[in-house]
């Protein structure tokens, strides 16, 4: 019996969301009185995998098969299923990412496990029933979900668990092979296209987000958003009307039908705060709203607010951040 953690790597590094997942998994292992093993997918280095010891992982399984560098749903599922069998894993923890959800859902059928996605807290053992809290209604609510059966799979929402850092602890890295065949690579990508990230901060992984709405008046004014984002080390985002008129790409659209984010800091500039947008951001720890309309509904959901013209306020904020640094 053990806990298996799926760790996503990119360019040799373990993704930040996967450090959270590893920390989550090792805490679950502690609750169950067992150890946490990780299985790594993507491009990883042995040194970085060994550092997962800091998140409480004792052992890391890694298959260096080159075709596993990019995401392949079929092959990843088989690899993780094989690792779960090898470790007799009773709980499998993944990130609630596109990869985690795509793999977790297939795994749940293959391993006859119950599955909860969008998990935001450590599990509770309520009189023998295994319960987790998850986000539902697109961020408008939470649900306590009871998982049945012996085997459980949990996909943990980004930024909802603090990553552990126990300096100096290392995990043992073991090479691992799931005997993959060509049939496991039917959905292998012909091509991978990465976005050009301004400032290098990915929105789904970001701790801080600066977001713009229709109040920005046009894509030519987005440099004001980007300058503040760069000074803060933040990712940029936008509201639905903005991506609908192609001022910004769809992958920046935050809201009920876009992506849901939960950064430590969300700064909304010229966004009125429609209920669909709030659903995508209301699990952010601190929300700042800048809008010239004091009646904008977003102020009711904000921690800090400035009633003023974004074109005057944003440069002042960028300047203040630069002075602070």
């Amino acid at each position: 019996m053990s806990v298996l953690v799926v760790v996503e790597c990119d360019g040799g590094e373990v993704k930040k969301s996967s450090l959270e997942v590893a920390s989550y998994g090792s805490q679950v292992a502690q609750m169950l009185g067992t150890t946490a093993t990780a299985v790594a997918v993507g491009e990883a280095t042995e040194a970085n995998l060994a550092k997962l010891g800091e998140q409480g992982i004792s052992k890391v399984l890694y298959d260096a098969e080159p075709r596993l560098k990019d995401f392949v749903n079929g092959a990843y599922t088989k690899l993780i299923a094989a690792a779960a069998e090898k470790e007799s894993a009773l709980v499998i923890v993944l990130a609630n990412s596109n990869i985690g959800a795509a793999v977790g859902s297939r795994l749940s059928v293959r391993l006859q496990a119950s599955l909860a996605t969008n998990v935001v807290e450590l599990p509770k053992n309520n009189g023998g029933s295994f319960t987790v809290k998850r986000g539902a209604f697109s961020g408008k609510a939470f649900a306590d979900v009871v998982l049945s059966g012996d085997r459980k799979i949990l996909a943990v929402k980004k930024n909802s668990i603090e990553a552990l850092h126990e300096a100096g602890k290392t995990a043992q890295v073991e090479s691992f092979s799931a005997s993959l065949s060509d049939a496991d690579f039917t959905d292998a990508p012909k091509q991978v296209v990465m976005q050009d990230q301004a400032g290098g901060v990915l929105l789904p992984e970001a701790d801080r987000v600066v977001s713009g709405g229709r109040g920005m008046k046009g894509p030519e004014n987005w440099h004001l958003i980007e300058e503040l984002a760069q000074a803060l080390g933040a990712a940029t985002a936008c509201s639905k009307p903005v991506s609908d008129v192609d001022w910004r790409p769809h992958h920046e659209h935050v809201g009920q039908t876009g992506i849901t984010v939960s950064p430590n800091l969300y700064i909304a500039c010229g966004i009125s705060g429609a209920i669909q947008h709030l659903a995508g951001v209301n699990s952010s720890k601190v929300i700042v709203v800048i809008n010239k309309d004091p009646e904008a509904p977003f102020f009711k959901a904000a921690d800090y607010g400035i009633v003023g013209d974004v074109f005057e306020v944003l440069p002042k904020l960028t300047q203040a951040v630069k002075e602070l640094n």
Partner: peptide
């Protein structure tokens, strides 16, 4: 394989602190 034991709404914000522009 799963069931909902209980739903909850997110905690309410304490109220916004306004800073003059």
């Amino acid at each position: 394989r799963t069931s909902v034991a209980e739903y909850a709404l997110p905690p309410k914000k304490q109220g916004v602190k306004l800073i003059p522009a």
